[in-house]
């Protein structure tokens, strides 16, 4: 079996697991009731206010900023850089390339360094701060290694040993229409793609679930209006009609 076929299978499988896993998890979060009003107050009293609070939380990491400036700086740096890097990568999946992806290209290219720097800082904390060292599990370290590996192999292709990027794009454009095109075989590219596929697979079964999870966090997504609205979950409502909860 050629490498092209192997990587095609890997990416189809990884995509299926990523999407299937996330859909299942999000479905589970959405279906699980939140029986009590538990926003961390002071909290917005309206839905519009909740949307703003969530937007600040997701875009600016507001709570983390309140908590610890070092973690905030490193974490925010990593996430924003990752976003720029991902946007830049859209050029390998679109033809013609969208104009704003073209704009993002130079930022995305150098954001790779910031991303690795942020990750390096976060990893250093796991060794240097005794409290963080205490709570770190092997998977916490491996996750950072994985992301740093993706970042370094990507930077390697951008700045050290260029791959045949036109063929890489042909390969992925082909994958999307089930038309196999040959994948270049230089080792840095293969390492980069393998690590990315691994990240996709573990996303829905790991702590990376914080990404969808934050939107479902009742302490952040509930409006503070319990006196004005009666909030009753289906299982709690059954207590009122005398039947036992399930």
């Amino acid at each position: 079996m050629s490498l092209t076929v192997l990587y095609a299978i890997v990416f189809y499988a990884a995509t299926a697991l990523l999407i299937g896993g996330l859909v299942a998890k999000i479905n589970c979060y959405a279906r699980t009731p939140a029986p009590l009003k538990i926003p961390t107050t002071p909290a917005p009293t309206t839905t519009g206010g909740v949307v703003l609070r969530m937007a600040r939380e997701v875009a600016l990491f507001e709570s983390l900023f309140k908590s610890n400036k070092w973690i905030w700086m490193l974490g925010w740096l990593f996430h924003v850089s990752l976003l720029l890097v991902l946007l830049r990568h859209l050029r390998y999946f679109t033809d013609p390339v969208w104009f704003w992806v073209v704009w993002a290209q130079p930022f995305g290219k150098y954001a790779g360094f910031a991303m690795v720097a942020g990750l390096g800082g976060l990893w250093a904390r796991r060794f240097l701060v005794d409290r963080v060292r205490y709570i770190s599990t092997p998977s916490d370290h491996l996750m950072l290694m994985l992301l740093i590996g993706i970042g370094l192999s990507g930077l390697g292709m951008s700045f050290v040993a260029h791959t045949d990027i036109v063929s890489v794009k042909d390969f992925f454009m082909g994958l999307m229409v089930f038309d196999l095109k040959p994948l270049p075989t230089d080792p840095v590219l293969l390492v980069h793609l393998s690590l990315v596929a691994l990240l996709m697979v573990i996303f829905p079964i790991s702590k990376l679930l914080h990404a969808p999870g934050v939107f479902f966090s009742p302490t952040r997504n509930q409006a503070d209006n319990p006196r004005e609205r009666r909030h009753l979950s289906p299982w709690a409502a059954k207590l009122e009609t005398g039947s036992k909860p399930e």
Binding site: K25, C28, Y29, T32, P33, A34, P35, I38, S63, L64, S67, N68, I71, G75, L122, R125, V129, R131, V132, I135, S136, T137, D140, K207, L209, H210, G213, V214, F216, S217, P218, T219, S233, W235, P245
Partner: peptide, 22 residues
Amino acid sequence: LGRYRSLRVFMDACVHCGACTD
């Protein structure tokens, strides 16, 4: 876990960042 979304999400979402440790 089936009755409280809080518990369900909180069990999954923690990344061990350490913000709460102090």
